[in-house]
Simulated scan of single mutants.
Amino acid sequence: MTTAASKRQRLATRLTQPGIITAPGIFDLISARLADRMGFDVLYMTGYGTVASYLGLPDAGLATFTDMLNRASAFAQATETPIIADGDTGYGGLLNVAHTVRHYEAAGVAGIQLEDQEFPKKCGHTPGRRVVPLEDMVRKVKVACEARANDDFLIVARTDARTTLGLDEALRRAEAYSKAGADILFVESPESEEEMQRIASAFEKPVLINNVEGGRTPVLSKSRLEEMGFKLAIYPATGFLAMGKALEEVYQGLQKDDVAAGTQGRLYEFDAFSRLMGFEAVWEFEKAHAE
């Protein structure tokens, strides 16, 4: 199993190399295992998807630090690929932020995303989000950087100011978070290609773009995003939206008289899925210890 330190170092090195980095959203251990075997440079633990799959609740500040740490740890242990994990607002004040960063790092993920929303936070592509004063988030970023044990553990600083305070304020905040020590900058929910271009070209540090199908931001090709200057493109919703659609269709098929016709061509092959989940190791163990 690859160590957490080597995963972090691998991602930190990749960020210095040319080319945009694609990060699919993982939200449960099936999605994590599937994505892990596909050769991505990094995976993104989506807060929306993780809260939905783990608790069956909306991403509205209802998941606790313990809930999210549990999932981050499980994902990190089950995968060889570096993971950036959603850490919401840090789950409280400055002491909580330090506590969160230390435990996420100890859990084995390669980085944490922290945002400047007021608590309780909301999904970044939903209305009604409010942000804390800039100075408060600057202090959170500084504390997060101080709390990590190794500089390869990445701090992703996100601002949700665009929707309520405008793009200029969002850019001002991202610049302040950069000066506070953030490794990756994340301006949430730009609403046009022109805004995306301004964001991508505004900073020296790597800039992340959030691609949410049906969200507030245009979803562009990876080549266009790279041309703009984005370094990291996350796709947090793609997996669970695809899963939801697929499950709905096959469950509808189960309601029909001809079940096989309703599931034909829509199912992962059972033996392959068993191997994906690690049954080969179980079979080998049983052979080695057969009486």
Results as ranks from 00 to 15, higher is better:
L185N: 06
A180E: 02
L247K: 06
T263R: 12
G229D: 03
V219S: 07
R275T: 14
L267F: 08
V212A: 00
I234W: 00
L232V: 14
Y268G: 05
Y177M: 05
K231A: 08
K179E: 15
G214E: 02
D183K: 01
I234C: 02
P218I: 07
N211T: 03
V212W: 00
L241C: 08
L276V: 09
I234P: 01
L267R: 10
N211P: 04
Y235Q: 06
L220E: 09
I209R: 01
E269T: 09
P218G: 09
Y177A: 01
R224W: 09
E193S: 10
A237Q: 06
F270M: 12
A242V: 04
S221A: 14
A237R: 00
L247F: 13
A233D: 08
L232N: 05
K179F: 10
G262Q: 10
R173I: 02
M243P: 02
S274M: 15
L225N: 08
A202L: 02
K179C: 07
Q255G: 15
A233C: 11
R266I: 01
S178A: 13
E204K: 04
L254C: 14
G262A: 11
D257I: 13
A202Q: 09
L185I: 08
L225T: 05
G262F: 10
L185W: 10
V219C: 09
Q264Y: 13
L241E: 11
L225I: 07
L254N: 09
Q264P: 00
G239I: 00
E280D: 15
D271V: 13
D258I: 09
K205S: 03
N210C: 01
A200P: 07
A202P: 04
A200V: 11
A233L: 07
S221E: 13
S192R: 05
G214Y: 04
I184H: 06
Y235H: 14
S221D: 14
L267E: 14
E195S: 03
N210V: 01
G229C: 06
S192Q: 05
L208Y: 01
N210K: 02
A180M: 04
D257F: 12
P190K: 05
K179L: 15
Q197S: 10
G181L: 02
V207R: 00
R173F: 04
K222L: 15
D257N: 14
E194S: 14
D271N: 12
E191M: 10
Y268R: 14
A246M: 12
Y235C: 05
A182Q: 03
Q252V: 07
V219W: 03
L247M: 15
F273P: 02
M196T: 00
E175Q: 14
G244C: 07
I209M: 04
Y235M: 06
Q197K: 13
L185F: 07
F240L: 13
V187G: 03
N211K: 02
G244Q: 11
D257V: 14
A260S: 12
F240C: 08
P206W: 00
S189M: 03
K256S: 14
F203R: 01
K245D: 11
F270H: 11
A176P: 01
S201C: 06
G239P: 02
K245W: 09
E194V: 10
A176E: 08
A176G: 07
F279T: 12
D271Q: 13
E213W: 11
A261G: 10
A281R: 13
